[in-house]
């Protein structure tokens, strides 16, 4: 099962930092997502995109995780050579992660 089946996500940017939220549809799935979608997992998943580190924040009251990825946008919105300079589409890539059940 893909992460997309149980969670949704939005990407934002500041400078060369990408910020991806991950929010479960159903609070019952929060523990599973927290267990499997670790900072290390996300760092591996985005290894071709993110050149810096990945920090994960937990927001249990919202059933959410927030990933902050440094050096992730090819120099940042103002100077990146990427087609998607803001990295707006990266949330869709996160949701492609296959969960182990």
């Amino acid at each position: 099962m893909k992460l997309r089946e149980i969670a949704h996500s939005r990407t934002g940017d500041k400078g060369n930092i990408s910020n991806i939220s991950l929010i479960v549809y159903n609070m019952d799935d929060y523990e599973l997502v927290k267990e499997q979608i670790t900072a290390i997992k996300v760092e591996e998943w985005f290894q071709n995109v993110v050149k810096g580190e990945v920090i994960r924040y937990e927001i249990p009251s919202l059933g959410a995780l927030n990933f902050v990825m440094t050096n992730a946008l090819g120099g940042g919105v103002t100077r990146s050579l990427s087609l998607d300079r803001h990295g707006k589409s990266l949330s869709s890539f996160l949701l492609e992660i296959e969960l182990t059940t």
Binding site: H8, R10, N19, I59, A64, V68
Partner: peptide, 16 residues
Amino acid sequence: TGTVKEQILYEIHDPS
């Protein structure tokens, strides 16, 4: 709650 949660976490980095 879904639309609001996405916007709460939008571009804020450390939520605390």
